[in-house]
Nucleic acid binder design. Structure first.
Lengths: 224, 224
DNA sequence: CTAATAGTGTCTGTAAGACAGTATTCA
DNA sequence: TGAATACTGTCTTACAGACACTATTAG
């Protein structure tokens, strides 16, 4: 029985919606390997540390998001032998969904549009694949879970929630049908007494996240 | 930067439908730790081995399913520090869906009903949790993917496919509505010229798996 | 013949998509 | 006032669920 020991890391795919684009939190690398490329924030798992704990810790230490309310879930694990040229590394990726935050407290960490990262810029290691997997997971999650609200501030309007769907899915949605569906979905939204005019026009009611963990019926992505 | 090295294993949740029950492939442990308990087949990842390759290898070596057509996908990774009393082990679990096979070639490996394993018998390590996660993944996959056919032989009838859904979901389905829905779903089933009377009654057409990777519209689990 | 299963058609309620129309704000 | 957005209602079509009915085998 081979008892090989390998380094285990956690890498973070942290997504948000900023300026009408889906963005991810990345480092700009200034030293080899992959100097000049972008990479996902991440780091080694410590010896007596559970994986979700490591993800939370790295969210603060490497993503600069200490004390921020972020949904975190395990995404997948990547471990082909040559993915890091220095040593064998098995990486457990976590997916985080965050509201639009002020710029990170660390200068090295930047929000970058996902499309630019995957289509234009050079990625370190297999981080392009991990990012694409995270984006696809987020797209799927919006269908059958209320996690779109994780991209919104604590109180938000139906139109803001709709823009999250439109940007993550990359497709326009009918505002009236969206409003009807989302307000009727059991446990998705809890209305507050307050309204806002930050979107212009007639004041819109503000909502909070409901307690539902899944949506019945699910939101359907168009063009299926 | 802590560079801790830990042992990495792959554990397999291999499911099938046998004798009208959802069953998993398990070992009966005859030595500590957890002597007398059941455990999932698995083993260490080798130093220059990719994770899916390790899963395939262990499917042959530890599950006794060499050369069998089994759907395999990554399930999740489990790594809390004390999950193995001997050493720190991070385990990448894979989910396998297999047709009803003749008994395994290894005497130590048995198909056991999932309900017995999770409700009655003692599990080693955190394998009860891993098994439950695998079963839940399988239940969800039947909704939006054509993977139910992975539980069937290469050619199967609509009734056999329906029984897979009924057993995995644990709920009866209307045979006529199921037939209509499943035969109209684009790319799910490919009809053959052959029929069978192995279920009794009027001969039923035999189908093969289609090429679709997802179902539109999805099959819906009742009681949602 | 009967029993059993395969497969089709029909009805009804619900929900999605399209979109008219009203409500309430700002400039 | 008009422009913009919020919200409600209506119509059509599609599909899920319930179930009547026909088709084809074995015994």
């Amino acid at each position: 029985m081979t008892d090989a020991r390998v380094a285990v890391t956690v890498d973070l795919v942290v997504l948000t919606v900023r300026e009408h684009r889906l963005c991810a939190l990345v480092w700009r690398r200034d030293r080899p390997p992959y100097a000049g490329a972008w990479s996902l924030p991440g780091g080694f798992v410590q010896l007596d540390e559970d994986l979700p704990v490591a993800a939370q810790r790295l969210m603060a230490e490497r993503a600069g998001l200490a004390g921020v309310r972020v949904h975190l879930e395990q995404l997948a694990t990547y471990g082909y032998p040559d993915r890091d040229p220095r040593q064998r590394v098995v990486s457990v990726a976590y997916l985080g969904l965050a509201p639009d935050l002020p710029a990170s407290s660390r200068a090295q960490v930047l929000w970058e549009p996902v499309d630019d990262l995957t289509q234009r810029d050079q990625a370190a290691f297999d981080h392009r694949r991990i990012l694409l997997d995270g984006v696809e997971r987020a797209r799927a999650k919006l269908e059958y879970s209320p996690l779109a609200a994780a991209f919104c501030p604590p109180e938000f309007t139906v139109a803001e929630l709709r823009r999250v769907y439109e940007i993550v899915w990359g497709t326009p949605l009918d505002p009236r049908n969206f409003h009807r569906k989302v307000t009727k979905a059991e446990g998705f939204l809890v209305p507050t007494e307050r309204t806002t005019t930050r979107d212009g026009g007639r004041p819109a009611r503000l909502y909070r996240r409901g307690s539902a963990e899944s949506l019945h019926p699910p939101m359907m992505r168009p063009a299926c």
